[in-house]
Structures are given as structure tokens and as C-alpha cells.
Amino acid sequence: MGLLFVIGSILLPIPQSLLNRKLNDLGKKLSEKRAQLLSAASDEINGVQHLLIMKVLILY
């Protein structure tokens, strides 16, 4: 019984390290996607503000 406990405790870090690696990769991908979305959103907001400013300048 003690041998099974020792073998189990030795093998336990293996799945944890594999899952940790997968989670890190997924986190990096999500971070890149979030940065792209933030960039697109800020471009959209800045573009709308620029168009509004230009429309006001043209009217006056």
C-alpha cells in the first residue's frame, strides 16, 4: 500500500505540469486576441471622434 502511495505521489506532478503548460498557452492566445480587440475598439472610437471634429470644422 505504501508503494502505491509513493508511485502516486511521484506521478501526480506530471498531469499538473501538462495542464499548466496548456493553460499558459491558452492565456497567451487570449491575451493576444484581447489586445487586438482593444486596438480595434480604440481605432473605432478615435476614428468616430475624428470624423465628428472634421464635420464640425466643415460646417463652420
Results as ranks from 00 to 15, higher is better:
Gln49Ser: 13
Met1His: 03
Phe5Met: 09
Leu18Asn: 07
Ile53Cys: 11
Leu38Ile: 04
Ile7His: 00
Pro15Ser: 02
Leu59Ala: 10
Ser9Lys: 04
Leu59Tyr: 06
Ile53Arg: 12
Leu52Ser: 06
Pro15Glu: 02
Asn24Ala: 13
Lys22Trp: 03
Leu57Gln: 05
Pro13Gly: 00
Ile53Ser: 08
Asp25His: 14
Glu32Thr: 03
Ile14Ala: 01
Leu59Pro: 01
Ile53His: 13
Phe5His: 03
Leu57Val: 08
Gln36Val: 15
Leu38Thr: 09
Lys22Cys: 03
Asn20Phe: 08
Ser39Phe: 05
Arg34Ser: 03
Gly27Arg: 10
Ser17Gly: 10
Arg21Asp: 13
Ile53Asn: 14
Ile7Glu: 03
Leu11Gly: 04
Leu19Gln: 10
Asn20Ser: 14
Gly27Ser: 09
Lys55Gln: 12
Ala41Arg: 08
Leu23Lys: 11
Pro13Thr: 00
Glu44Lys: 12
Met1Gln: 04
Leu51Gln: 15
Arg34Lys: 11
Leu12Glu: 04
Leu52Glu: 07
Leu51Phe: 10
Ser17Met: 14
Leu12Asp: 02
Pro13Phe: 00
Val48Asn: 07
Asn46Met: 05
Leu23Tyr: 06
Tyr60Arg: 07
Leu59Gln: 09
Val56Cys: 11
Lys55Asn: 07
Asp25Ser: 14
Ile58Ser: 08
Lys29Glu: 07
Leu26His: 05
Glu44Cys: 13
Leu51Trp: 12
Ile14Tyr: 01
Gly8Asn: 04
Gly8Ser: 06
Glu32Arg: 12
Lys22Thr: 10
Ala40Lys: 13
His50Ser: 15
Leu52Ile: 11
Ile45Gly: 04
Leu59Lys: 15
Ser31Tyr: 04
Lys29Leu: 05
Ile7Gln: 00
Arg21Cys: 14
Lys22Phe: 04
Leu26Tyr: 04
Val6Ile: 07
Ile58Tyr: 15
Leu51Lys: 09
Gln16Leu: 11
Leu37Met: 07
Leu18Met: 10
Arg34Cys: 01
Ser42Leu: 05
Gln16Pro: 08
Ser31Gln: 10
Leu11Val: 06
Leu11Tyr: 07
Leu18Val: 11
Leu11Asn: 02
Asn24Trp: 14
Tyr60Phe: 10
Val48His: 10
Leu11Ile: 05
Lys29Gln: 08
Arg21Glu: 07
Lys22His: 02
Ile53Gln: 15
Asp43Asn: 15
Met54Val: 11
